[in-house]
Simulated scan of single mutants.
Amino acid sequence: MKRSLISRRNFIHRSIGLVLTLWAGQSLAQTRWAGMKLDITFEFVGNGFRYRPPYVAVWLEDAQGLPVRTLAVWFEQSRKGPRWLNELRRWYRSNEPTEAVSGPTRMPGRYTLSWDGKDDKGNLVNQGDYYVCVELVREHGPYELFREKVILAQTPFKRSYNVAGELKEVSLSYDRQG
């Protein structure tokens, strides 16, 4: 009879050790992420007679372009339903509005939204490459999409982008929470 080089007891101990090591590594990465946040500040302008506020969606995508977390969707909510919501083309193709993030349109101004590193289900995501997306569309007005790749790790950063159109400026600030 041929003997195995690894006993059952040894196999179980090694397996448990491997699982604990992998779990601790994932936990450590998520703990590092948990102390960081990303602030997205954007400003849009508009004026004129009978100005209609734009529909706005702000969300994050992973490196493959798949949605991770929707931070806000502002659109007109009327008796006829969410008319024109599908004009937020990129956001609409793979997302649905929820009461947690949706709300009425806003007048021109400067707004800040924060992301704590969690996906739409409340789970911490891994650090890495992400896309910050701000989409703006107005009835009888322009369509604009700001999409910028960022690397979210341990290094804080601040960046500002000037955008031509009604979406005037987008600023990103990645730093420790607190």
Rank of each mutant, 00 (worst) to 15 (best):
A57H: 01
P53K: 05
P142Q: 14
V137C: 02
T105P: 06
Y130F: 15
R138V: 01
G141A: 13
P104G: 14
F75I: 05
G25V: 06
A164P: 00
V73L: 05
L20Q: 13
Y161A: 01
N162E: 11
T155I: 10
V68S: 06
T70P: 05
P53E: 11
M1N: 12
A100G: 07
P142E: 15
R32G: 03
E76V: 04
Q77S: 10
L88D: 02
Y174L: 05
H140D: 15
D39R: 05
Y143N: 03
R50D: 15
P156Y: 08
H140V: 06
V125T: 13
T98C: 05
A100P: 00
A29K: 07
L22I: 05
G103N: 04
P54G: 06
F146R: 00
K2A: 12
V45D: 09
G81H: 11
P108I: 06
R79I: 08
G25S: 12
A63G: 06
P156Q: 09
Y174M: 06
R83D: 15
S7I: 01
Y111T: 07
E99N: 10
V56Q: 02
L172W: 04
L66C: 07
L167E: 00
M1I: 10
R9C: 04
M107Q: 12
R176G: 10
R106M: 11
S160Q: 13
W59D: 00
T155W: 04
G81T: 10
T31C: 07
K2P: 15
H140R: 13
V45K: 08
T98H: 06
R89G: 01
R93E: 15
S27R: 10
I16W: 11
Q154S: 14
W74Y: 14
V73D: 00
F157H: 11
R9D: 15
R52C: 06
V58F: 04
L145T: 07
V170W: 02
D119F: 03
L167G: 00
F49C: 05
A34R: 13
S15G: 08
G48M: 11
Y131D: 03
S171D: 10
S4D: 15
Q127C: 08
D129N: 08
G46D: 04
Y143F: 14
S160R: 12
Y51D: 05
K80H: 10
E144H: 07
F75L: 07
D119I: 02
L18M: 12
L136T: 00
A57G: 05
L85R: 05
R14V: 09
A63D: 15
D62Y: 07
E96S: 09
W115K: 02
V56A: 01
F146T: 06
G109E: 10
R83W: 11
S4E: 15
V68P: 02
Y131K: 00
G165Y: 01
F75M: 01
L5F: 13
G122I: 05
L38Y: 00
K80G: 15
L88M: 09
D119G: 03
W33E: 00
F42Y: 13
R93K: 12
Y51E: 09
